[in-house]
């Protein structure tokens, strides 16, 4: 097996396919108190992230939109990972997650998010994996312009 075949298998793990086929928390949320749009004009990937925050914690999170397998699975895994966390914990997790994809992976347990670590070997796809997170960040800070990764 060539290095590239290995990298490709790391990128497209079964968990990614599963979350791409059946994204979790994939619905809109009329009762959301925070939301933001994300768009990657180069790919056409587009999503909206919805949040309901209670006492500084993410009580509910969901998303709708369309994109490639990496972008859809990343959004789905993100919603599972951030539910119940405080806003500060989420922002810290985003920072570490971003570092895992682009820089030295921080020493922490990423849980299921670790399956996205394979994106490191595909710089052109980092924007796919981070679009949902940038959008979540914008929802948290109340940014009204769409988040963009390009």
């Amino acid at each position: 097996m060539s290095t590239m075949d290995g990298n490709l298998r790391e990128l497209y793990q079964e968990v990614i396919f599963d979350h791409n086929r059946k994204p979790r928390n994939f619905h809109d949320m009329p009762e959301a108190d925070h939301q933001a749009d994300g768009h990657n004009p180069l790919c056409g990937d587009q999503l909206t992230v919805f949040l309901r925050i209670e006492d500084g914690r993410i009580a509910e999170v969901s998303f709708v939109g369309h994109g490639c397998a990496i972008s859809t699975a990343s959004a789905s895994l993100m919603t599972e990972a951030v539910k119940g966390k405080t806003v500060e914990e989420v922002e810290a997790l985003f920072k570490d997650f971003h570092a895992m994809l682009t820089d030295t992976p921080p020493d922490r347990d990423f849980g299921k998010l670790a399956v996205l670590g394979g994106v490191r070997e595909f710089p052109a796809r980092v924007k796919c994996a981070t679009l949902a997170w940038h959008t979540l960040h914008n929802a948290l800070i109340g940014e009204h312009d769409p988040a963009r990764t390009e």
Binding site: M4, N7, L8, L11, Y12, C68, A69, I70, A124, C128
Partner: peptide, 12 residues
């Protein structure tokens, strides 16, 4: 299969 996923796999 999204075109970008296809592009990555074809590139490999």
């Amino acid at each position: 299969i999204h075109p970008h996923d296809l592009g990555t796999i074809l590139d490999a």
